[in-house]
Simulated assay, not measured.
Amino acid sequence: MTKKRKVPLRKCVATNEMKDKKEMIRIVRSKEGEVSIDLTGKKSGRGAYVSKDKEAILKAKKKNILGTHLEAEVSPELYEELLMLVDAGDPK
């Protein structure tokens, strides 16, 4: 009998949905207050997860959810970078 591996779940800060960690993008705030995208999931600092979904990212931008959650200023360029990542991974 094979053992099932535990799939790590994370909650999207924009939609409050629990999803597989691989379906999310981690945004991290370092001790210095710098906010960046963490594709490895291993950077140190306070993290927040957003779904790889255009609507979730736009909602987070509109309501400044990431800025509130990370307690830091999130630049518009970071949101543009997130949207480009989602578009690049979208096989349309």
Rank of each mutant, 00 (worst) to 15 (best):
K3T: 15
K4H: 07
V7F: 00
P8Y: 00
P8W: 04
P8D: 13
L9I: 14
L9A: 04
V13H: 11
A14N: 00
E17F: 04
E17I: 02
M18R: 10
M18E: 15
D20L: 07
E23C: 07
E23W: 08
M24C: 08
I25C: 00
I25T: 11
R26M: 03
I27N: 05
E32Y: 12
E34R: 07
E34M: 05
V35K: 11
V35R: 10
V35Y: 07
S36Y: 09
L39W: 00
K42P: 04
K43Q: 09
R46D: 10
G47R: 09
G47S: 00
A48L: 05
Y49N: 00
V50S: 09
K52M: 05
K52C: 06
K52Q: 04
K52S: 11
K54F: 12
A56M: 13
I57K: 07
I57Y: 03
L58E: 13
A60W: 14
N64P: 09
I65E: 04
L66N: 09
H69W: 04
H69M: 11
L70E: 03
L70P: 01
E71C: 14
E73R: 13
P76R: 07
E77N: 11
Y79C: 02
E81G: 00
E81M: 02
E81D: 06
L82H: 14
L85H: 04
A88R: 13
A88H: 09
G89T: 15
P91V: 14
P91T: 15
P91A: 06
K92A: 14
